[in-house]
């Protein structure tokens, strides 16, 4: 390291650096050798696989690239605490309250159009409050949820011409919850009905209408106005079917 090649002309201005030192810093440097081609190793492979699995889990919540679903499964806002501050223990809550609470969460998917209060947006999105479709039979509602609607559509004497997306990507349970929610929250229920739609009923709706094309108004009107989806009534306190 000590013998310097004084022939080098480094052309540095006086005072900036000396040829000798410059030379040494460069000279002691090692040569960059051609890269090796070793295999990856098991640990690295396992770690990469973990990264892939983790990414897959997150990716699994993409809700099928739907442009109208805004709420992720693991990201549902907590409902505000009850008035008295203490949330009642789970067992003491009536089944229907939980069912409605879950329905409200699913309804987050709808608020962009139908608004949190269910009143819709005049001329654009129909209301759920005062809608004969919500107040009427559950078979029509199940059909709407599964396949969506397109084209001119009349609700409460007003006509709309937009598209209602299909929600067949949601589980039967979630559809049942949200339909229960809109019926009990926004609907005017006929005498003697509790407005509850169960998972079993949506299963039946899927049998009937699953995989059908998007509805137009005529197709839906062909379903009798008061047709109800088959399924057992349930006890509102326990959620158990009533024979």
């Amino acid at each position: 390291m000590s013998d310097h090649d004084h022939d080098q002309n480094l052309d540095y201005e006086a005072g900036t650096a000396s040829v000798v030192d410059m030379h040494d810093a460069v000279k002691r440097e090692k040569v960059l050798q051609p890269s090796g081609h070793e295999p990856m190793g098991v640990t690295a492979l396992v770690l990469c696989a973990m990264a892939l699995i983790g990414g897959g889990i997150v990716f699994g919540h993409n809700n099928g690239f739907s442009s109208s679903i805004y709420v992720q499964d693991f990201y549902t806002p907590e409902p505000p605490p009850s008035e008295d501050g203490a949330a009642a223990a789970d067992e003491n809550v009536a089944w229907i309250d939980k069912w409605m609470k879950d329905g409200k969460k699913v309804y987050n998917n709808c608020i962009a159009c139908h608004q949190p209060d269910g009143l819709g947006a005049p001329g654009q999105f129909p209301p759920l409050v005062g809608s004969e479709w919500v107040d009427g039979g559950t078979e029509r509602l199940g059909a709407i949820m599964l396949n969506g609607i397109a084209g001119p559509f009349t609700v409460a004497g007003q006509s709309y011409n937009q598209a209602m997306p299909a929600w067949n990507g949601l589980s039967d349970e979630k559809i049942a919850q949200v339909v229960t929610y809109i019926r009990r929250e926004f609907g005017t229920l006929p005498e003697g009905q509790d407005g509850v739609v169960t998972t079993e009923m949506i299963e039946a709706a899927r049998e009937l209408y699953g995989g059908k094309p998007t509805w137009d108004e005529g197709g839906l009107l062909a379903i009798p106005e008061d047709a109800m989806l088959p399924g057992a009534k349930v006890d509102l306190q326990t959620g158990e079917p009533i024979q």
Partner: peptide, 23 residues
């Protein structure tokens, strides 16, 4: 206020990038 798939996809990409970290 983004369709749910956008954060899901970005999150997945962020995790997949760990492969570069490991490598």
């Amino acid at each position: 206020p983004f369709p749910a798939w956008m954060p899901a996809l970005s999150g997945a990409a962020t995790l997949f990038i760990l492969i570069a970290v490991v490598a």
